[in-house]
Design a protein around this nucleic acid. Structure first.
Lengths: 125, 125
DNA sequence: CTAAAACCTGACGCTAGCGTCAGAGGCAAG
DNA sequence: CTTGCCTCTGACGCTAGCGTCAGGTTTTAG
């Protein structure tokens, strides 16, 4: 039997989330609109977040940089939260993994190509 | 003294360039509009390309995939063609190199992150 | 109490690399 | 000659992740 202790966590407002994660306030609202981030509301309607919203937003940024869409991230969030996955989610995870790996390979090839150019133009003043 | 032998190269039309490089005809026109690709014109106005337009377009694709804009590519084309660079171009080359390397690192971090999730969800059916 | 700072909800704008449709001309084959 | 494919020039559309302005409320600092 598990007892959950409500830790009376200090809730933070959107500006603090944004500064903490290094994004704009607008971006945080956008993530909510895309279903990535659920916020409580204060009586007056202001968004209230738990502190782990900050690393979560950082995670979103990392995934965006890796080329995942907000839709995909939303679909994969349950795995992240609960550790539970169904077959479809596992398939998506592998697919994204392959996409990213392929992208890395492409970038490496481009980098090598550029390095060749740099080498040539250096010995060729 | 250098004598240039005009090799009477067979010129190709836009469709052949597109198929050869694996892009759309629209894309090739776009590259011209961005100043990446100069084409001769037949008397009737059709674009005529030399055969090395095909690897050139492939190169564009590689650079696009690496995150360079068409503007940047256009600015760096002279280095590629002539092997000659001025200081500004060398700076841009290095900067793009660093950008790509940073992007690779970011992607690798994201990949590692995803792999963790995959590992957890695999041992956690 | 008041002024500044932070927050709210729309809603339009932007970028970049094309896709796509419209309407018209060019070119080899039968 | 005509059929069918290729090409031409505009020009509007699309996507995704926000930026930004407008006009109004709330919270905080002094």
């Amino acid at each position: 039997m598990t007892v959950t202790v409500a830790a009376a966590e200090r809730l933070i407002r959107i500006g603090e989330v944004a500064r903490g994660a290094g994004v704009s306030v607008r971006a945080v609202r956008y993530y909510e609109q895309q279903g990535l981030l659920i916020a409580e509301r204060s009586p007056s309607g202001q968004r209230l977040y738990r502190q782990d919203a900050i690393p979560l937003v950082r995670f979103f940024q990392e995934m965006f940089a890796a080329g995942l869409t907000s839709r995909r991230i939303a679909e994969l969030l349950p795995c992240w939260d609960s550790g539970h996955t169904d077959a479809e989610q596992r398939t998506m995870l592998r697919a994204e993994r392959e996409r990213i790996q392929a992208k890395i390979d492409d970038l490496q090839a481009a980098l090598d190509h550029l390095d060749e150019v740099i080498a040539i133009t250096d010995t060729h003043p």
